[in-house]
Computed example of a mutant assay.
Amino acid sequence: MRGQEFEARQRQREWFHGLTVPPGAHAVVRVDGRGFSRLTEERFEKPFDERFSRIMVATAEAMLGEFGARYVYTESDEISVLLPPDTNLFGRGVEKIVSITAGFASAVFTHEAGRPAVFDSRIWLGNTGEEVLDYFSWRQGDATRCALNGWCYWTLRHQGKSRREADAAMSGASTAAKNELLYGYGVNFNETPAWQRRGIGLWTEEFERPGHDPVRDRAVTAVRRRVRIERELPMKDEYRALLSDTVRV
């Protein structure tokens, strides 16, 4: 069998889905850490660890630049990457986007953390900017819920409770009851760092930098771009307004 024929036959056996992101659709790629519960228990403090947060932000910032994202949001072990509606990233191929974003996040996190870590990836699609705002409101709501649960669970564990006892104490408890539980141990959930409860947003912004033109001997102003890392995100309607005005969703 000739080489070209042999290669053609092997390529026919490759199974590749040709799905693409529809033209004009708003696409958000979300990567999630795989097996991160065990990873974080072994390597980081609970319920939150500043070093882990810095690694996640470094990974999010790398994704912002690598994939030409309009906005990136990270909370817990997940990162959401908002692509421009007119993106032609990997020809808008779904299989390429999810595989490469997962691989890229895994590589950056591994490099920053100094140990292997793996992310999976999926794509969320929206038709309008309003639906994009709904998505990020949803993820921020998840951040708040997970933060409250994490603070409750690990406060009980640090007090000597077993996994089963901590789970039983939280089972069926309302938000108010969980806040009361924490208050009983001297923790006011509303006073915990905002980034723990609301997540962290990243986007590219323009700013003016004063300078001097030596040829014309006069002051000038140059417009530069930088990455904004916001650890004090607002909530609810204020958060949606921020995304609408600053990120142009």
Rank of each mutant, 00 (worst) to 15 (best):
R231E: 10
E238Y: 13
D32P: 06
I79V: 13
A27L: 13
A168I: 01
R164T: 06
H158Y: 09
E41S: 11
H111R: 12
V227D: 00
S162I: 06
H158I: 00
W203P: 01
S76I: 01
P234S: 11
A166G: 05
S106Q: 06
D142G: 06
P214N: 14
I100F: 12
A173D: 00
E131G: 11
D142V: 04
G114E: 05
W203T: 08
G68R: 07
S174M: 08
Q4T: 14
L125S: 04
I55H: 10
I79G: 02
T110R: 08
Q4C: 09
G184Q: 12
D213W: 13
A219V: 14
R9Q: 12
E7W: 14
N188Y: 10
L125A: 03
K178H: 06
P214H: 15
G35L: 04
Q10M: 15
T110P: 11
N188I: 13
I100K: 09
G68C: 13
T204Y: 03
S174Y: 06
P84Y: 09
G211C: 10
D167E: 13
A105F: 05
R197E: 00
A117Q: 01
A107H: 14
G141F: 01
K161Y: 10
D217T: 06
V118N: 01
A60T: 03
L202C: 09
T59Q: 05
M56N: 05
P193L: 07
A69E: 01
L156D: 01
W124F: 12
T144W: 12
T128N: 04
G24L: 08
D120K: 07
G65K: 12
S137Y: 03
P85Y: 11
R225D: 00
V187C: 11
A113G: 13
F52W: 10
I97A: 03
R43M: 01
Y239Q: 07
M235F: 09
V118H: 05
A222K: 11
A107T: 09
L156Q: 03
R92H: 07
D245I: 15
Y185N: 07
K96A: 08
D32S: 13
D167H: 10
H111F: 14
M235R: 14
W124V: 02
D134K: 10
A143N: 01
E50N: 14
R224Y: 10
R226E: 08
E75D: 02
